[in-house]
């Protein structure tokens, strides 16, 4: 199966690989997927407490090229967004941007889940109720 140029670019030059301090109050961490499924994504956001803007985002992913590219792209999109706007990122936007084939759509779903999971972690840490996910992926 051939990968799109954008997937290859993210795979070869992943954006924002790394780890933020998960114990910090302004950091939200999402860990989704499972080793037995062949995909695990960890996505972290750091939110500016004053402005509510995501000032940093990092990821680490165990998975195929499409999974790596989806999470790399997600961190790129998250930086500079408000938490509320970040919640609007839809997996189909990722599919479109990376031209993912149907068999790789689950990679984009996982990235969306990782974003939501990171945001909820941040919200809970800061005394807010987690957002109910209206899209049931599992």
């Amino acid at each position: 199966m051939a990968y799109s140029e954008k997937v290859i670019d993210h795979y070869n030059n992943p954006r924002n690989i790394g780890t933020l301090d998960k114990n910090k109050k302004e950091v939200g961490t999402g860990l989704v997927g499972a080793p037995e499924c062949g995909d695990v994504m960890r996505l972290q956001i750091e939110v500016d407490e004053v402005t509510g803007i995501i000032k940093d985002a990092k990821f680490k992913t165990f998975g195929c090229g499409s999974a790596i590219a989806s999470s790399s792209l997600a961190t790129e999109w998250l930086k500079g967004k408000s938490v509320d706007d970040a919640l609007k990122i839809d997996n189909m936007d990722i599919v479109e941007e990376l031209a993912l084939p149907p068999v790789k759509i689950h990679c984009s779903v996982l990235a969306e889940d990782a974003i939501k999971s990171a945001i909820n972690d941040y919200r809970v840490k800061n005394g807010l109720a987690p957002i109910e996910d209206d899209k049931k992926h599992y």
Binding site: Y11, G63, C64, G65
Partner: peptide, 11 residues
């Protein structure tokens, strides 16, 4: 271990 095979093949 800890590296996914398809991702590795791409590498």
């Amino acid at each position: 271990k800890y590296v996914e095979g398809e991702g590795l093949i791409m590498g």
